[in-house]
Simulated scan of single mutants.
Amino acid sequence: MKTFLKILLTALAVVVLAKILPGVTVIDYTTAVIVAIVISLLNMFVRPLLVFFTLPATIVTLGLFLFVINAIIILLADKLVDGFEVPGFFTALLFSVLLSFFRTVLFSLLKDEKQIRN
């Protein structure tokens, strides 16, 4: 249930970012949910490989290269999901930073609700 809720919150963040950022398009809410699932799967399987293979660049840049990896994940999701478009690398970079911020805020609200119930 918690994973399903996280995917829905990520889809909500994707829709909001598509409205805010110029050039980013999401056709409908179903596409946003699919984008959220694809981003989650890419973060689970592809991101660790990218981090491993780019470890020297990540160390030299003191971790800032991880932003580039996040942008690559967004561009991969763009290629994999029809109905989701990100026009370029810098838009994907901004999208990934804002998505991370929105997810952090939304997921912290979930934790606060859980702590209140206990």
Score class of each variant (00 low, 15 high):
Lys114Phe: 06
Thr91Gly: 04
Thr61Gly: 01
Thr61Tyr: 00
Gly83Leu: 06
Leu93Glu: 03
Phe90His: 10
Leu99Asn: 12
Leu66Ser: 07
Leu62Phe: 10
Phe90Ser: 10
Phe101Cys: 10
Ala92Phe: 07
Thr58Asn: 08
Asp78His: 14
Gly88Val: 08
Leu66Glu: 12
Leu110Ile: 11
Asp82Gln: 13
Ala92Ile: 09
Leu110Arg: 08
Glu85Asn: 09
Phe90Pro: 05
Phe102Asn: 01
Gly63Asn: 02
Phe101His: 11
Phe67Pro: 05
Val86Ala: 04
Arg103Gln: 15
Leu106Gln: 06
Phe101Glu: 13
Gly63Lys: 02
Pro56Gly: 01
Phe65Ser: 03
Glu113His: 03
Ala92Thr: 08
Pro56Trp: 07
Gln115Ile: 08
Phe95Asn: 03
Phe67Met: 09
Arg103Leu: 14
Thr91Trp: 04
Leu94Ile: 14
Lys111Phe: 09
Leu76Met: 15
Asp78Ser: 10
Ser96Cys: 05
Phe53Lys: 05
Gly88Lys: 05
Ala71Asn: 11
Phe53Ser: 07
Ile73Thr: 02
Ala57Val: 11
Ile73Gln: 02
Pro56Asn: 03
Val97Phe: 15
Leu98Asp: 12
Leu106Pro: 02
Thr54Asp: 00
Asn70Val: 13
Asp78Val: 08
Pro87Phe: 12
Phe95Thr: 05
Pro87His: 10
Leu94Val: 12
Ile73Val: 14
Gly63Pro: 00
Ser108Gln: 14
Ala57Gly: 02
Leu94Tyr: 06
Pro56Val: 04
Asp112Gly: 02
Ala77Thr: 14
Ser100Asp: 10
Ile73Glu: 04
Asp78Thr: 14
Ile69Asp: 01
Leu62Trp: 00
Leu93Asp: 04
Gly63Trp: 05
Lys79Ala: 13
Ile74Cys: 07
Thr58Ser: 03
Val86Thr: 07
Phe102Thr: 03
Phe84Met: 07
Leu93Cys: 03
Arg103Pro: 03
Thr54Ile: 01
Pro87Gln: 11
Phe65Leu: 09
Phe95His: 07
Ala92Gly: 11
Leu64Met: 06
Phe65Lys: 01
Phe89Ile: 09
Leu94Lys: 04
Val105Ala: 10
Val68Tyr: 10
Leu75Gly: 07
Ile73Tyr: 03
Leu93Trp: 10
Val81Glu: 06
Glu113Ala: 07
Ser108Lys: 15
Val60His: 05
Phe90Val: 13
Val97Pro: 03
Thr54Cys: 01
Ile74Val: 15
Leu62Glu: 00
Leu62Gln: 00
Leu66Val: 09
Arg103Asp: 14
Leu62Asn: 00
Leu62Lys: 01
Leu76Asp: 01
Leu94Glu: 07
Leu55Trp: 02
Asp112Thr: 07
Ser96Asp: 05
Phe89Pro: 03
Phe67Gly: 08
Ala57Asn: 00
Glu85Ala: 14
Leu80Val: 13
Pro87Trp: 12
Asp82Met: 08
Ile72Leu: 15
Lys79Ser: 12
Phe53Gln: 11
Leu76Ser: 06
Phe95Ser: 04
Val105Gly: 06
Leu98Asn: 08
Asp112Leu: 15
